[in-house]
Design a protein around this nucleic acid. Structure first.
Lengths: 189, 189
DNA sequence: CATCTATATAGATGTATATCGAATGAGAAG
DNA sequence: CTTCTCATTCGATATACATCTATATAGATG
Protein backbone atom coordinates (compact mmCIF):
# COMPACT_ATOMS: atom_id res chain seq x y z
CA UNK A 1 0.00 0.00 0.00
CA UNK A 2 2.02 2.85 1.36
CA UNK A 3 5.54 2.92 -0.02
CA UNK A 4 6.39 5.74 2.33
CA UNK A 5 5.70 3.78 5.49
CA UNK A 6 8.01 1.06 4.25
CA UNK A 7 10.85 3.48 3.57
CA UNK A 8 10.47 5.11 6.97
CA UNK A 9 10.45 1.81 8.82
CA UNK A 10 13.44 0.56 6.86
CA UNK A 11 15.41 3.68 7.71
CA UNK A 12 14.49 3.29 11.36
CA UNK A 13 15.28 -0.39 11.73
CA UNK A 14 18.42 -0.28 9.62
CA UNK A 15 19.74 2.48 11.83
CA UNK A 16 19.24 0.26 14.87
CA UNK A 17 20.47 -2.99 13.35
CA UNK A 18 24.10 -2.47 14.20
CA UNK A 19 25.98 -3.25 17.37
CA UNK A 20 28.06 -0.09 17.40
CA UNK A 21 25.03 2.13 16.92
CA UNK A 22 23.15 0.40 19.72
CA UNK A 23 26.12 0.95 22.01
CA UNK A 24 26.08 4.60 21.02
CA UNK A 25 22.44 4.86 21.96
CA UNK A 26 23.34 3.31 25.28
CA UNK A 27 25.97 5.97 25.85
CA UNK A 28 23.65 8.77 24.72
CA UNK A 29 20.88 7.64 27.04
CA UNK A 30 22.50 9.35 29.99
CA UNK A 31 23.88 12.47 28.30
CA UNK A 32 24.94 14.15 25.10
CA UNK A 33 28.45 13.35 23.85
CA UNK A 34 30.90 14.66 21.28
CA UNK A 35 32.19 12.59 18.38
CA UNK A 36 35.56 12.35 20.09
CA UNK A 37 34.05 11.08 23.35
CA UNK A 38 32.09 8.41 21.53
CA UNK A 39 35.16 7.36 19.56
CA UNK A 40 37.14 6.99 22.78
CA UNK A 41 34.39 5.10 24.61
CA UNK A 42 33.89 2.66 21.73
CA UNK A 43 37.53 2.39 20.66
CA UNK A 44 36.86 3.36 17.06
CA UNK A 45 38.22 6.07 14.75
CA UNK A 46 36.29 9.29 14.45
CA UNK A 47 35.26 8.87 10.81
CA UNK A 48 33.56 5.64 11.79
CA UNK A 49 31.62 7.42 14.52
CA UNK A 50 30.66 10.18 12.08
CA UNK A 51 29.40 7.56 9.69
CA UNK A 52 27.18 5.99 12.34
CA UNK A 53 25.92 9.30 13.66
CA UNK A 54 24.89 10.25 10.15
CA UNK A 55 22.75 7.12 9.96
CA UNK A 56 21.15 7.76 13.34
CA UNK A 57 20.50 11.35 12.34
CA UNK A 58 18.98 10.35 9.02
CA UNK A 59 16.59 8.09 10.92
CA UNK A 60 15.66 10.96 13.22
CA UNK A 61 17.02 9.33 16.36
CA UNK A 62 19.63 11.87 17.39
CA UNK A 63 20.01 15.63 17.27
CA UNK A 64 23.18 17.69 17.00
CA UNK A 65 24.28 20.87 18.74
CA UNK A 66 27.47 22.70 17.80
CA UNK A 67 29.68 24.49 20.26
CA UNK A 68 32.69 25.86 18.48
CA UNK A 69 34.20 22.99 16.56
CA UNK A 70 32.71 20.39 18.81
CA UNK A 71 29.49 18.66 17.78
CA UNK A 72 27.42 17.33 20.65
CA UNK A 73 24.99 14.57 19.78
CA UNK A 74 21.98 13.71 21.93
CA UNK A 75 19.19 11.18 21.74
CA UNK A 76 15.93 12.50 20.35
CA UNK A 77 14.07 10.58 23.02
CA UNK A 78 10.66 11.96 22.12
CA UNK A 79 10.94 10.59 18.61
CA UNK A 80 12.58 7.44 19.90
CA UNK A 81 9.84 6.48 22.33
CA UNK A 82 6.91 7.65 20.29
CA UNK A 83 8.07 5.87 17.18
CA UNK A 84 9.15 2.63 18.80
CA UNK A 85 5.65 2.41 20.27
CA UNK A 86 3.88 2.94 16.94
CA UNK A 87 6.32 1.11 14.68
CA UNK A 88 4.84 -2.34 14.73
CA UNK A 89 1.17 -1.83 15.47
CA UNK A 90 -1.41 -3.30 13.08
CA UNK A 91 -2.22 0.19 11.81
CA UNK A 92 1.37 0.49 10.58
CA UNK A 93 2.20 -3.02 9.43
CA UNK A 94 -0.98 -3.18 7.35
CA UNK A 95 0.55 -0.54 5.14
CA UNK A 96 3.56 -2.71 4.34
CA UNK A 97 1.95 -5.05 1.83
CA UNK A 98 0.73 -4.36 -1.68
CA UNK A 99 -2.76 -5.31 -2.61
CA UNK A 100 -1.62 -8.01 -4.97
CA UNK A 101 -2.51 -10.53 -2.30
CA UNK A 102 -6.17 -10.22 -3.24
CA UNK A 103 -7.45 -9.17 0.17
CA UNK A 104 -7.40 -5.47 -0.57
CA UNK A 105 -10.84 -4.79 0.86
CA UNK A 106 -10.17 -6.62 4.11
CA UNK A 107 -6.90 -4.73 4.53
CA UNK A 108 -8.74 -1.46 4.01
CA UNK A 109 -11.35 -2.30 6.65
CA UNK A 110 -8.65 -3.26 9.15
CA UNK A 111 -6.66 -0.17 8.32
CA UNK A 112 -9.73 2.05 8.73
CA UNK A 113 -10.66 0.70 12.14
CA UNK A 114 -7.23 0.43 13.74
CA UNK A 115 -5.46 3.30 15.41
CA UNK A 116 -2.10 1.91 16.39
CA UNK A 117 -2.86 -1.25 18.28
CA UNK A 118 -6.39 -0.25 19.32
CA UNK A 119 -9.74 -0.50 17.59
CA UNK A 120 -11.33 2.89 17.01
CA UNK A 121 -14.77 1.31 17.37
CA UNK A 122 -16.61 -1.88 16.60
CA UNK A 123 -17.91 -1.56 13.02
CA UNK A 124 -21.68 -1.26 12.73
CA UNK A 125 -21.72 -2.82 9.28
CA UNK A 126 -22.11 -6.57 9.50
CA UNK A 127 -19.55 -7.29 6.77
CA UNK A 128 -16.91 -5.00 8.21
CA UNK A 129 -17.55 -6.33 11.71
CA UNK A 130 -16.95 -9.83 10.36
CA UNK A 131 -13.54 -8.79 9.05
CA UNK A 132 -12.54 -7.38 12.43
CA UNK A 133 -13.87 -10.41 14.30
CA UNK A 134 -11.96 -12.81 12.07
CA UNK A 135 -8.80 -10.83 12.63
CA UNK A 136 -9.34 -10.93 16.38
CA UNK A 137 -9.94 -14.68 16.20
CA UNK A 138 -6.47 -15.09 14.69
CA UNK A 139 -4.93 -13.63 17.82
CA UNK A 140 -6.01 -16.79 19.65
CA UNK A 141 -3.38 -19.28 18.60
CA UNK A 142 -3.56 -21.92 21.32
CA UNK A 143 -5.42 -25.14 20.53
CA UNK A 144 -5.76 -25.74 24.28
CA UNK A 145 -8.56 -23.28 24.84
CA UNK A 146 -8.86 -20.18 27.03
CA UNK A 147 -10.67 -19.22 30.22
CA UNK A 148 -13.09 -16.31 29.97
CA UNK A 149 -10.57 -14.15 31.84
CA UNK A 150 -7.89 -14.97 29.27
CA UNK A 151 -10.25 -14.21 26.40
CA UNK A 152 -11.10 -10.85 27.95
CA UNK A 153 -7.44 -10.13 28.50
CA UNK A 154 -6.55 -10.66 24.85
CA UNK A 155 -9.57 -8.79 23.50
CA UNK A 156 -8.94 -5.99 25.98
CA UNK A 157 -5.67 -5.20 24.24
CA UNK A 158 -7.70 -4.01 21.27
CA UNK A 159 -10.95 -2.58 22.65
CA UNK A 160 -12.58 -1.82 26.00
CA UNK A 161 -15.91 -3.47 25.24
CA UNK A 162 -14.70 -7.04 25.55
CA UNK A 163 -18.15 -8.38 26.37
CA UNK A 164 -19.58 -7.32 23.02
CA UNK A 165 -16.56 -8.60 21.12
CA UNK A 166 -16.72 -11.95 22.90
CA UNK A 167 -20.44 -12.33 22.32
CA UNK A 168 -20.12 -11.41 18.64
CA UNK A 169 -17.26 -13.85 18.15
CA UNK A 170 -19.30 -16.67 19.62
CA UNK A 171 -22.25 -15.61 17.44
CA UNK A 172 -20.05 -15.75 14.36
CA UNK A 173 -18.85 -19.19 15.44
CA UNK A 174 -15.26 -18.04 15.58
CA UNK A 175 -14.97 -19.23 19.17
CA UNK A 176 -17.19 -21.60 21.09
CA UNK A 177 -17.74 -22.10 24.80
CA UNK A 178 -17.85 -25.53 26.40
CA UNK A 179 -17.77 -25.99 30.15
CA UNK A 180 -16.42 -22.53 30.83
CA UNK A 181 -13.54 -22.95 28.34
CA UNK A 182 -13.40 -21.13 25.02
CA UNK A 183 -12.01 -22.83 21.94
CA UNK A 184 -11.09 -21.23 18.63
CA UNK A 185 -12.40 -22.67 15.39
CA UNK A 186 -9.63 -24.01 13.14
CA UNK A 187 -8.54 -21.38 10.58
CA UNK A 188 -10.57 -21.38 7.40
CA UNK A 189 -7.48 -22.04 5.26
CA UNK B 1 26.49 -3.62 31.03
CA UNK B 2 24.19 -6.34 29.91
CA UNK B 3 25.58 -8.17 26.91
CA UNK B 4 22.38 -10.14 26.65
CA UNK B 5 20.16 -7.14 26.08
CA UNK B 6 22.41 -6.06 23.25
CA UNK B 7 22.26 -9.45 21.55
CA UNK B 8 18.48 -9.60 21.85
CA UNK B 9 17.99 -6.12 20.45
CA UNK B 10 20.39 -6.81 17.60
CA UNK B 11 18.52 -9.95 16.66
CA UNK B 12 15.24 -8.07 16.76
CA UNK B 13 16.31 -5.04 14.74
CA UNK B 14 18.34 -7.01 12.23
CA UNK B 15 15.31 -9.16 11.55
CA UNK B 16 13.30 -6.05 10.75
CA UNK B 17 15.98 -4.19 8.79
CA UNK B 18 15.12 -5.71 5.44
CA UNK B 19 12.54 -4.64 2.89
CA UNK B 20 11.43 -8.15 2.00
CA UNK B 21 10.93 -9.12 5.63
CA UNK B 22 8.91 -5.98 6.33
CA UNK B 23 6.70 -6.80 3.35
CA UNK B 24 6.22 -10.28 4.75
CA UNK B 25 5.13 -8.83 8.07
CA UNK B 26 2.66 -6.70 6.15
CA UNK B 27 1.24 -9.78 4.49
CA UNK B 28 1.15 -11.71 7.75
CA UNK B 29 -0.69 -8.93 9.56
CA UNK B 30 -4.00 -10.01 8.12
CA UNK B 31 -3.56 -13.78 8.14
CA UNK B 32 -1.18 -16.71 8.27
CA UNK B 33 0.40 -17.74 4.95
CA UNK B 34 2.37 -20.64 3.54
CA UNK B 35 5.89 -20.31 2.17
CA UNK B 36 4.54 -20.77 -1.33
CA UNK B 37 1.95 -18.01 -0.92
CA UNK B 38 4.58 -15.60 0.35
CA UNK B 39 6.92 -16.49 -2.51
CA UNK B 40 4.15 -15.82 -5.03
CA UNK B 41 3.05 -12.56 -3.41
CA UNK B 42 6.61 -11.22 -3.25
CA UNK B 43 7.84 -12.69 -6.54
CA UNK B 44 10.78 -14.51 -4.98
CA UNK B 45 11.94 -18.16 -4.95
CA UNK B 46 10.99 -20.34 -2.06
CA UNK B 47 14.51 -20.77 -0.64
CA UNK B 48 14.70 -17.02 -0.26
CA UNK B 49 11.44 -16.95 1.66
CA UNK B 50 12.62 -19.79 3.88
CA UNK B 51 15.77 -17.86 4.60
CA UNK B 52 13.81 -14.78 5.70
CA UNK B 53 11.30 -16.75 7.72
CA UNK B 54 14.16 -18.37 9.62
CA UNK B 55 15.42 -14.93 10.60
CA UNK B 56 11.99 -13.76 11.70
CA UNK B 57 11.53 -16.95 13.67
CA UNK B 58 14.93 -16.63 15.32
CA UNK B 59 13.91 -13.16 16.48
CA UNK B 60 10.67 -14.55 17.89
CA UNK B 61 8.43 -12.59 15.53
CA UNK B 62 6.62 -15.40 13.76
CA UNK B 63 5.33 -18.85 14.65
CA UNK B 64 4.91 -21.90 12.42
CA UNK B 65 2.12 -24.43 12.11
CA UNK B 66 2.41 -27.51 9.89
CA UNK B 67 -0.46 -29.03 8.00
CA UNK B 68 0.77 -31.93 5.90
CA UNK B 69 3.70 -30.65 3.88
CA UNK B 70 2.54 -27.09 4.09
CA UNK B 71 4.05 -24.76 6.69
CA UNK B 72 1.82 -21.88 7.73
CA UNK B 73 3.59 -18.89 9.24
CA UNK B 74 1.81 -16.32 11.42
CA UNK B 75 2.85 -13.18 13.22
CA UNK B 76 3.49 -13.58 16.92
CA UNK B 77 1.66 -10.36 17.56
CA UNK B 78 1.86 -10.58 21.33
CA UNK B 79 5.63 -10.70 21.22
CA UNK B 80 5.69 -8.13 18.43
CA UNK B 81 3.69 -5.46 20.24
CA UNK B 82 5.06 -6.10 23.71
CA UNK B 83 8.64 -5.99 22.54
CA UNK B 84 8.34 -3.04 20.21
CA UNK B 85 6.95 -1.08 23.16
CA UNK B 86 9.80 -1.99 25.52
CA UNK B 87 12.66 -2.02 23.04
CA UNK B 88 13.83 1.55 23.25
CA UNK B 89 12.82 2.72 26.70
CA UNK B 90 15.50 4.17 29.00
CA UNK B 91 15.36 1.03 31.13
CA UNK B 92 16.52 -0.97 28.12
CA UNK B 93 18.91 1.38 26.37
CA UNK B 94 20.79 2.03 29.61
CA UNK B 95 21.91 -1.59 29.46
CA UNK B 96 23.57 -1.09 26.08
CA UNK B 97 26.71 0.71 27.22
CA UNK B 98 29.65 -0.58 29.18
CA UNK B 99 30.75 1.26 32.25
CA UNK B 100 33.98 2.38 30.68
CA UNK B 101 32.43 5.79 30.21
CA UNK B 102 33.03 6.58 33.86
CA UNK B 103 29.44 7.29 34.80
CA UNK B 104 28.77 3.82 36.13
CA UNK B 105 27.06 5.00 39.30
CA UNK B 106 24.74 7.41 37.49
CA UNK B 107 23.78 4.67 35.05
CA UNK B 108 22.98 2.37 37.94
CA UNK B 109 20.76 4.95 39.61
CA UNK B 110 18.88 5.58 36.37
CA UNK B 111 18.59 1.88 35.73
CA UNK B 112 17.26 1.27 39.25
CA UNK B 113 14.56 3.91 39.06
CA UNK B 114 13.31 3.37 35.52
CA UNK B 115 10.77 0.75 34.58
CA UNK B 116 10.48 0.99 30.83
CA UNK B 117 9.86 4.65 30.12
CA UNK B 118 8.42 5.46 33.57
CA UNK B 119 9.99 6.38 36.87
CA UNK B 120 9.21 3.86 39.61
CA UNK B 121 9.34 6.66 42.17
CA UNK B 122 11.18 9.87 42.91
CA UNK B 123 14.33 8.93 44.84
CA UNK B 124 14.35 10.01 48.47
CA UNK B 125 18.13 10.23 48.56
CA UNK B 126 19.29 13.69 47.60
CA UNK B 127 22.18 12.44 45.46
CA UNK B 128 20.10 9.95 43.55
CA UNK B 129 17.31 12.47 43.09
CA UNK B 130 19.88 14.83 41.57
CA UNK B 131 20.83 12.19 39.00
CA UNK B 132 17.22 11.70 37.99
CA UNK B 133 16.54 15.44 37.84
CA UNK B 134 19.57 16.05 35.66
CA UNK B 135 18.43 13.31 33.32
CA UNK B 136 14.97 14.85 33.12
CA UNK B 137 16.49 18.25 32.42
CA UNK B 138 18.19 16.80 29.36
CA UNK B 139 14.80 15.97 27.89
CA UNK B 140 14.22 19.71 27.47
CA UNK B 141 16.20 20.50 24.36
CA UNK B 142 14.66 23.75 23.17
CA UNK B 143 16.51 26.99 23.92
CA UNK B 144 13.23 28.86 23.35
CA UNK B 145 11.69 27.98 26.70
CA UNK B 146 8.52 26.15 27.64
CA UNK B 147 5.15 27.04 29.11
CA UNK B 148 4.19 25.38 32.38
CA UNK B 149 1.76 23.17 30.49
CA UNK B 150 4.54 22.01 28.17
CA UNK B 151 6.85 21.31 31.11
CA UNK B 152 4.13 19.25 32.77
CA UNK B 153 3.48 17.40 29.55
CA UNK B 154 7.10 16.32 29.18
CA UNK B 155 7.57 15.42 32.85
CA UNK B 156 4.25 13.58 32.80
CA UNK B 157 5.69 11.08 30.35
CA UNK B 158 7.94 9.86 33.14
CA UNK B 159 6.02 10.30 36.40
CA UNK B 160 2.58 11.37 37.59
CA UNK B 161 3.75 13.83 40.23
CA UNK B 162 4.82 16.53 37.81
CA UNK B 163 4.44 19.28 40.41
CA UNK B 164 7.12 17.80 42.67
CA UNK B 165 9.45 17.15 39.76
CA UNK B 166 9.02 20.67 38.44
CA UNK B 167 9.58 22.24 41.86
CA UNK B 168 12.68 20.11 42.50
CA UNK B 169 14.13 20.97 39.11
CA UNK B 170 13.71 24.67 39.78
CA UNK B 171 15.25 24.18 43.23
CA UNK B 172 18.24 22.42 41.69
CA UNK B 173 18.55 25.31 39.22
CA UNK B 174 18.13 22.97 36.27
CA UNK B 175 15.27 25.08 34.98
CA UNK B 176 14.27 28.60 35.86
CA UNK B 177 10.99 30.46 35.58
CA UNK B 178 10.77 33.99 34.24
CA UNK B 179 7.47 35.59 33.37
CA UNK B 180 5.61 32.28 33.19
CA UNK B 181 8.14 30.74 30.81
CA UNK B 182 10.57 28.03 31.87
CA UNK B 183 14.09 27.96 30.51
CA UNK B 184 16.63 25.16 30.81
CA UNK B 185 20.11 25.84 32.07
CA UNK B 186 22.80 25.20 29.45
CA UNK B 187 24.23 21.65 29.79
CA UNK B 188 27.10 21.39 32.22
CA UNK B 189 29.46 20.08 29.54
C1' DC C 1 46.74 34.84 6.86
C1' DA C 2 48.61 30.66 9.19
C1' DT C 3 47.74 27.20 12.33
C1' DC C 4 45.42 24.18 15.38
C1' DT C 5 41.45 21.38 16.59
C1' DA C 6 37.14 18.73 15.96
C1' DT C 7 34.39 16.81 12.28
C1' DA C 8 33.15 15.40 7.95
C1' DT C 9 33.89 13.34 3.25
C1' DA C 10 36.27 10.26 -0.18
C1' DG C 11 38.17 6.12 -1.53
C1' DA C 12 39.66 1.37 -0.51
C1' DT C 13 38.95 -3.13 1.61
C1' DG C 14 37.02 -6.94 3.89
C1' DT C 15 32.97 -9.06 5.79
C1' DA C 16 28.03 -9.93 6.00
C1' DT C 17 23.98 -11.23 3.66
C1' DA C 18 20.07 -11.41 0.04
C1' DT C 19 19.21 -14.09 -3.70
C1' DC C 20 19.38 -17.89 -6.79
C1' DG C 21 19.70 -22.92 -8.67
C1' DA C 22 20.64 -27.55 -7.23
C1' DA C 23 20.35 -31.10 -3.91
C1' DT C 24 18.01 -32.97 0.19
C1' DG C 25 14.02 -34.07 3.49
C1' DA C 26 9.58 -35.26 4.65
C1' DG C 27 4.60 -35.87 4.26
C1' DA C 28 0.84 -37.33 0.99
C1' DA C 29 -0.96 -40.04 -2.77
C1' DG C 30 -0.85 -43.47 -6.14
C1' DC D 1 8.02 -48.56 -2.85
C1' DT D 2 7.61 -44.73 -6.03
C1' DT D 3 6.20 -40.42 -7.13
C1' DC D 4 4.66 -35.76 -6.14
C1' DT D 5 4.50 -31.66 -3.46
C1' DC D 6 6.08 -28.27 -0.33
C1' DA D 7 9.82 -26.88 2.28
C1' DT D 8 14.56 -26.53 3.87
C1' DT D 9 19.62 -26.78 3.38
C1' DC D 10 23.84 -26.09 0.58
C1' DG D 11 27.05 -23.61 -2.32
C1' DA D 12 27.87 -19.79 -5.27
C1' DT D 13 27.53 -14.86 -6.40
C1' DA D 14 26.77 -10.08 -6.14
C1' DT D 15 25.67 -6.24 -3.46
C1' DA D 16 25.55 -3.54 0.91
C1' DC D 17 28.08 -1.60 4.46
C1' DA D 18 31.37 -1.11 8.65
C1' DT D 19 35.82 0.26 9.15
C1' DC D 20 40.09 2.20 8.06
C1' DT D 21 43.60 5.91 6.16
C1' DA D 22 44.04 10.09 3.74
C1' DT D 23 42.09 14.44 2.50
C1' DA D 24 39.01 18.33 3.04
C1' DT D 25 36.11 21.74 5.68
C1' DA D 26 35.14 24.95 9.32
C1' DG D 27 35.55 27.36 13.49
C1' DA D 28 38.97 29.13 16.98
C1' DT D 29 43.42 31.25 17.98
C1' DG D 30 47.68 33.41 17.28
Amino acid sequence: MNEDTLATLLLFFRALADETRLRMIGLLTTQERSVEELAAALDLRMPTISHHLAKLKEAGLVTMRREGNTHYYALDSVSLHARSREMLTPATTLALADDTSGDAWERKVLHDFFVGERLKEIPASRKKRAVILRWLARQFTSREGYTEAQVNDILGRFHADVATLRREMVGAQLISREGGIYHVAPPAA
